[in-house]
Design a protein around this nucleic acid. Structure first.
Length: 443
DNA sequence: CCAGAGACTTGGAAAAATCTTG
DNA sequence: CAAGATTTTTCCAAGTCTCTGG
């Protein structure tokens, strides 16, 4: 126990010198500063490079970015040296090296999420999403008009934008053959969308991280007809939007709003939904009740964004266990009721199942016990429902990446919910820039 | 335009830390 | 206080999007 703690402190001390960077005179936390150890590459889904050997990274692979007059960090491996030292103040990375699996890609060391640099860009991201509020009406009107455009490129842009707006789909960049075969909006294949007359579309594809997206939605008739047209005379594996790629789409979006790209819709959709749900569903009540409302809104966002997780290995065992516990409590309840009846008649309580005799309790005391046990059973039932309900839904991703923290902070202030109930320590650090928001803030 | 290089955000799984409970 | 459950952190893969040079 003691040794463990000492060991941990020793490790921390060793790493301390790698944990901070001075940026414009301010000491900022560094993100992950370790190179990845050699091993076998584990891609996700059907990755062509699965199991490939990932070779060791050496100092000679690493390019360092540091201030002109700052001392260059000492190379930790004797006899070796860094690949290159750069002084580029137009980028935020502290160093990078080539990805050993795909040399066209790079691995970077950046500042931590809690740094002011990341915080500032996070805030800008949400401000951009908020700006979309002012444009969304026109954007929707514009693409609705183009659902029937005779210019097929325009028509495809309109339908794609609609799907990104309505379903929070990702943009869908082109992928190489040496990557897992997944799609986003612009890369949807004919086979990923099935029409269900008269006006439903059934989506079925593998998205980012090869997570399955399955959703059937009712759409406007012109959209349905446009999809019909885009699918006509094509094979199942042909591109649905053959006149489109993310570049064309984003170029078009930028004409509608400065800085607008496809991913902004996801942020907008997520944050707008949270703000809206919280405003509509928050009632008077204690902190626990308000947290139920928050988590419910959070869940809705996670479903919109299709943030999934695999069911934990022990899930069904845990459910069984909880059920057994409830059964036990039910038995206890039954016995308490019998004893209550007897107590009211002045009789002594029954013997407990193991044969021991119980204390002689007043009816009032038994009543209290019964209501306590009832409450316990109710709580367990609720916990079980929530657990089952959330077994495949990941709430964390949206909290970390899509929900404007100012919505949460302001809501907490308005409803006297301590922020620590919603954000853990690292989220509070990451969202430091949002903590002093006005309680009246709305997304 | 267009492809490729580059830089940054987003993502789920697994490991580690912490909390709960019998 | 240990086992189990839950939460947090770490890990690193996989996206998005910009920029640049031809």
């Amino acid at each position: 126990m003691q040794e463990k703690k000492a060991l941990k402190e020793e490790k921390l001390k060793q790493e301390e010198k790698y944990m901070w960077a001075i940026v414009d005179g301010v000491k900022e936390k560094v993100g992950n500063f370790r190179v990845e150890p050699p091993g076998l590459f584990r891609g996700r889904g059907e990755h062509p490079k699965m199991g490939k050997l990932k070779k060791r990274i050496h100092p000679r692979d690493i390019i360092i970015n540091i201030g002109e007059d700052a001392p260059v960090p000492e190379c930790p491996i004797p006899g070796e040296r860094w690949k290159e030292i750069r002084h580029d103040n137009t980028v935020t990375w502290l160093c990078y090296w080539s990805d050993p699996i795909n040399p066209k890609l790079f691995k970077y060391v950046f500042l931590a999420a809690s740094s002011s640099l990341k915080g500032q860009s996070d805030k800008e991201k949400y401000e951009k999403a908020r700006l979309l509020k002012d444009y969304i009406e026109n954007i929707r009107a514009a693409y609705t008009k183009d659902f029937t455009s005779k210019d097929i490129t325009k028509q495809q842009i309109a339908v794609a934008t609609y799907l990104i707006d309505k379903l929070a789909l990702r943009a869908g960049n082109e992928k190489d053959d040496d990557e897992a075969d997944t799609v986003g909006c612009c890369t949807l294949k004919v086979e990923n969308v099935t029409r269900e007359a008269p006006n439903k579309l059934q989506f079925n594809f593998l998205g980012k991280d090869s997570i399955k997206y399955e959703n059937t939605v009712e759409v406007e008739l012109p959209v349905y007809n446009a999809i019909l047209k885009f699918q006509k005379d094509k094979g199942p594996s042909d591109d649905l939007f053959d006149k489109l790629d993310t570049n064309k789409l984003n170029t078009h979006l930028k004409e509608l709003m400065p800085g607008l790209t496809a991913k902004v819709f996801r942020t907008y959709n997520a944050s707008f939904t949270l703000d809206d749900k919280l405003a509509k569903d928050t009632k008077d009540g204690d902190v626990a009740e308000k947290m139920v409302v928050y988590n419910h809104a959070n869940k809705e966002v996670a479903i919109i964004c299709n943030h999934q997780r695999s069911v934990s290995k022990s899930h069904s065992a845990q459910m069984t266990k909880l059920n057994e516990k409830i059964d036990e409590l039910q038995a206890v309840l039954k016995e308490l009721k019998v004893d209550l009846d007897r107590a009211r008649k002045g009789k002594p309580p029954t013997k407990s199942s193991d044969g021991k005799s119980k204390r002689n309790l007043a009816p009032e005391a038994l009543e209290k016990k019964i209501s306590q046990t009832n409450a316990k059973v109710e709580k367990m039932r609720r916990d079980m429902m929530t657990k089952e309900d959330l077994k495949t839904i990941a709430l964390g991703t949206s909290k970390l990446n899509y929900l404007d923290p100012r919505i949460t902070v302001a809501w907490c202030k308005r409803h006297e919910v301590p922020i620590e109930k919603i954000f853990n320590k690292s989220l509070i650090a990451k969202f430091a820039w949002a903590m002093d928001v006005d309680p009246d803030f709305r997304f």
